[in-house]
């Protein structure tokens, strides 16, 4: 595969995001984060450092959390990408609300995504694993206790992804959380 020749010429790529195929024009050096935000209007992923340090831009790619500032958009071709916009009514989101697990909200999509990915991969993670995953992100407002409580309430509740069939479809073309969330 070879893409792009002339510098600053845009190319058209297809990405699979939240279950939909989208087509967009990009520069080869564009980060997935910028394409999501600037081209596709998916501004839930936030720029916090563009350096892979803060996790505010975390999305899920192929069932794994991924910092979208550390990915060229071109690398994401043919991969399954879920952004916070593709997550609707997940249990973790409800528990974030119930436990006041956010304040300014800027890091929240990243924390929701990394938590959701964790629960997809392991509905009953041990403490060490929780620390390992969640320490990929930075929250400057809370003392993390609220986020911890939100996550553990899902773990204890045993409904890791909140993706029972009844929760599936929501309006406005937003896609089927069960597809993005269900683990093989």
């Amino acid at each position: 595969m070879k893409i792009s020749k002339d510098t600053y010429q845009k190319i058209t790529i297809k990405l699979k995001i939240n279950g939909e195929i989208v087509e967009t024009d990009i520069h080869v050096s564009d980060l997935l984060l910028n394409v999501l935000r600037d081209k596709l209007g998916l501004t839930g992923a936030k720029p916090g450092c563009l350096n892979g340090d803060c996790g505010a831009c975390t999305v899920i790619m192929n069932q794994k959390p991924m910092k979208s500032c550390l990915l060229l958009a071109i690398e994401a071709i043919r991969e399954e990408i879920t952004t916070i916009e593709g997550l609707l009514n997940s249990t973790i989101q409800k528990e974030f609300v119930n436990h006041f697990a956010f304040q300014c909200g800027y890091c929240t999509p990243g924390f929701v995504m990394v938590s959701h990915a964790l629960l997809m991969n392991d509905p009953n993670p041990d403490k060490k694993t929780v620390i390992e995953w969640l320490s990929s992100n930075i929250c400057r407002c809370t003392g993390y206790q609220e986020i911890e409580k939100a996550l553990y309430s899902v773990i204890k509740g045993g409904n890791a992804c909140g993706l029972k069939p009844k929760n599936t479809v929501k309006s406005n073309g937003a896609k089927k959380t069960d597809e993005t969330g269900r683990l093989n």
Partner: peptide, 21 residues
């Protein structure tokens, strides 16, 4: 009581200055 800005924040719908394009 739950915060008034809760749902927009946990869904990524909350808009910040840099989100405007």
């Amino acid at each position: 009581v739950a915060r008034k800005d809760a749902w927009e924040k946990v869904t990524g719908q909350a808009k910040y200055t840099g989100d405007s394009q």
